[in-house]
Design a protein around this nucleic acid. Structure first.
Length: 378
DNA sequence: AACGCGTGGCG
DNA sequence: TCGCCAAGCGT
């Protein structure tokens, strides 16, 4: 890899920050250096692109303008504000950290990366970003952009998928960070990584730091960064149960142990489990299937599940690929039996719940087919 | 250390 | 349709 002299470091800072001052993006969270604003934006930006985050950030600040407001927010409102943004544990961790700030720190922010890292949901990158941007600490904020930019500039061969590579990069970048403007330096690297030095379609030959780009000189830009590939998502076949009654549709809130926790969906049953039930084998069925069976037997209700036409709904996650076949049943009466932990939701009220994308797709499919001649969709 | 965790965009 | 990528963190 390349090594830079102090003179090269100085020239690099100059070129980078001159460009950033002229061409840096005007983003909603860059209007001031309020640590609350920086923190919320950084958490939203974890694994998420800027143009996706902007409307969520604006809405979030309108709903929760201060750390105290966030700490006191009702969870359904919080989850609704995060709906569609993904990685939902971020929202819960954000609120828990807000409560830490209010109660443990009496509203006073830790002013260093080391202190900030004690907040739940704030890891090494986010802690350094907040510390440098809001409090001027001279530390590198090493995210995917910094990995890519410096891997190319210096031709660093370490595999960025390995956890310990972070320390390697931090050690290399630390003396390069501009001690006078660490926050601007870190943000400039990110802007560079999302413009002239992207993963694909980058244009390093015209970047403001092209003179410092060893991979460009070597004609090896696309060799960096080195990163081992992630495994393919595992196929997970489900049935989505659309159970309709005069009271509405049966919805369940996903538990803390499940992914998408706190969000609401139609009951989802692994296809293998439902088949085991049908075969009369020892039951691997979920609560919902067992309850639908019991309900059917005790109340003598017709709960025969019919397929809903059309192809299955699919949703790909980082490690799972769901294929959801929709089955539906129409109950003429509800009786007083309860579907724990489910809840009947009127069609016009479904959109008020926090819903993950896969539920929106199932709901859309249902509305397209409209098998129960429903007129009350919101 | 390796894995689980959402969604949207792009070639 | 597919594979890869995007301002990571918790366990």
């Amino acid at each position: 890899m390349e090594e830079w002299t102090p003179a090269t470091v100085k020239a690099f800072r100059q070129a980078l920050l001159t460009w950033y001052d002229q061409e840096g993006r005007d983003l909603p969270w860059r209007h001031d250096q309020d640590p609350y604003h920086v923190w919320v934006s950084e958490v939203m930006l974890q694994q998420t692109q800027v143009q996706t985050v902007i409307p969520y950030y604006e809405n979030f600040m309108a709903n929760f303008p201060t750390v105290a407001a966030l700490a006191a927010a009702p969870e359904p409102q919080l989850l609704k504000a995060w709906q569609g943004l993904g990685y939902y544990s971020r929202a819960r961790n954000l609120q828990r950290a807000a409560q830490q700030i209010v109660t443990d720190y009496h509203g006073e922010w830790p002013r260093t990366a080391a202190g900030l890292a004690d907040l739940v949901g704030v890891g090494p990158y986010t802690a350094s970003a907040i510390a440098s941007i809001a409090f001027g600490e001279v530390v590198p904020a090493v995210d995917g952009n910094a990995f890519r930019v410096f891997a190319r500039l210096l031709m660093i061969e370490d595999d960025i998928a390995k956890p310990r590579t972070r320390q390697t990069f931090e050690k290399i970048i630390q003396p390069i960070v501009d001690p006078k403007r660490p926050g601007a330096f870190n943000q400039a690297i990110m802007d560079l990584g999302s413009s002239y030095m992207t993963a694909k379609n980058s244009d390093p030959a015209h970047s403001p730091v092209k003179e410092f780009d060893a991979s460009l000189r070597a004609g090896r830009v696309t060799d960096f960064p080195v990163k081992t590939k992630a495994p393919r998502p595992k196929l997970m076949p489900y049935y989505g149960l659309i159970i309709h009654s005069p009271a509405g549709y049966l919805m369940v809130q996903r538990t803390e142990q499940e992914m998408l926790s706190g969000y609401w969906t139609f009951p989802l049953v692994r296809q293998a489990d439902l088949r085991e039930e049908d075969d009369g084998e020892p039951s691997l069925a979920t609560d919902i299937v067992a309850l639908t069976r019991r309900w059917q037997q005790e109340a003598h209700l017709d709960l025969s599940l019919q397929p809903l036409g059309g192809r299955s709904v699919s949703q790909t996650y980082t490690h799972q690929r769901w294929q959801v076949k929709l089955l539906m049943a129409n109950l003429q009466t509800v009786s007083d039996l309860q579907f724990y932990p489910g809840q009947w939701v009127a069609p016009g009220d479904i959109a008020d719940l926090p819903l993950p994308k896969v539920q929106e797709k199932m709901g859309q499919r249902l509305q397209d087919q409209n098998p129960f001649d429903e007129k009350e969709w919101k």
